[in-house]
């Protein structure tokens, strides 16, 4: 007799826990060959709102950690991911039908991307901030601070795509609510398991699975979300509508565009969700 394998239930990742959608809904996910693979949770409006609440609750603690500490946590994600390379390579092959070589390229790029961003944690302020030479007896200094809770519509690449949007947002101190790749949600939840075991505090990364067009508007219009990354939105009409919703509380918006995620990133994924704070103080004796 062959052994019957134990299958995993794919759930959401909210506040460091893995709940099912409160709606009880799910949708079938097929592998690259079109065979049933598993059911993914179909997140609801309530799930999205719960995720924002968890992200807001985590923001104070995460943003006030030292940059050194945040860098180590992001580096830790890379370490744990490195340990599970084979699992992710296999998942990418199943999900997207990649060749072994391609799958390895993406997994390695995802790990290396995490390492790259981890190193930015305690350098970004030196590169984007500094002393301002004002014409008067004042100490004047600018430094970046995280914008707050960032909603992210992840691109379809379930691993490198997800890492490329999450790492730059959280390494600077933001917390995130991510809508995973709609066609390939399962790898995103596996990545959530990596996060959950990498000292990433609960609520810093929250991952929802389900239809982008249904969930994204709730996040775009949520008044306690400070920014939205539309990288994964390919429908221009949806992107436009999300931008309109986002304007209601002046969210910082990263507009979608065609990008080669394997190429070395620029700083703008971090700087889009950073605020510059300038502090003045008189000098005198």
């Amino acid at each position: 007799m062959t052994r019957i394998d134990v299958r995993k239930t794919y759930k959401l990742y909210i506040g460091g826990a893995f709940p099912r959608s409160e709606s009880g809904r799910s949708y079938a996910v097929n592998d690259a060959r079109g065979r049933f693979w598993a059911n993914a949770s179909h997140a609801s409006r309530k799930d999205a709102r719960d995720a924002v609440k968890a992200a807001r609750a985590a923001f104070g603690g995460w943003s006030s950690r030292t940059a050194y500490n945040r860098g180590q946590v992001v580096y830790r994600i890379a370490e744990v991911l490195e340990d599970r390379r084979e699992q992710f390579e296999a998942e990418l092959r199943t999900a997207e039908g990649l060749t072994a070589a391609k799958a390895r390229t993406y997994v390695e790029a995802a790990i290396d991307r995490l390492v790259w961003y981890a190193g930015w944690a305690d350098k970004i302020a030196q590169v984007t901030g500094g002393a301002n030479q004002v014409a008067g007896p004042y100490f004047n200094h600018s430094a970046p601070e995280p914008s707050g809770v960032i909603a992210v519509v992840a691109p379809s690449g379930p691993l490198l795509g997800l890492v490329s949007v999450i790492a730059p947002a959280i390494v600077t101190g933001n917390t995130t609510v991510v809508i995973a790749s709609e066609p390939h949600p399962l790898t995103s939840i596996t990545l959530a398991e990596v996060m959950a075991t990498s000292d990433v505090p609960g609520g810093v990364v929250n991952i929802l699975t389900g239809p982008q067009a249904e969930i994204a508007p709730w996040l775009a219009s949520h008044m306690d979300v400070n920014g939205i990354d539309l990288t994964g939105v390919t429908d221009d009409e949806l992107a436009r509508n999300l931008e309109i919703e986002a304007a209601e509380n002046l969210k910082r918006v990263r507009r979608p565009g065609v990008e080669d995620l394997l190429a070395p990133p620029a700083l703008d994924r971090m700087t889009t969700f950073l605020e510059t704070k300038t502090v003045w103080h008189p000098m005198g004796i």
Partner: peptide, 11 residues
């Protein structure tokens, strides 16, 4: 300990 200071060099 100051207020409403502006300078072209200050963001």
């Amino acid at each position: 300990n100051t207020f409403n200071r502006f300078d072209p060099a200050s963001p």
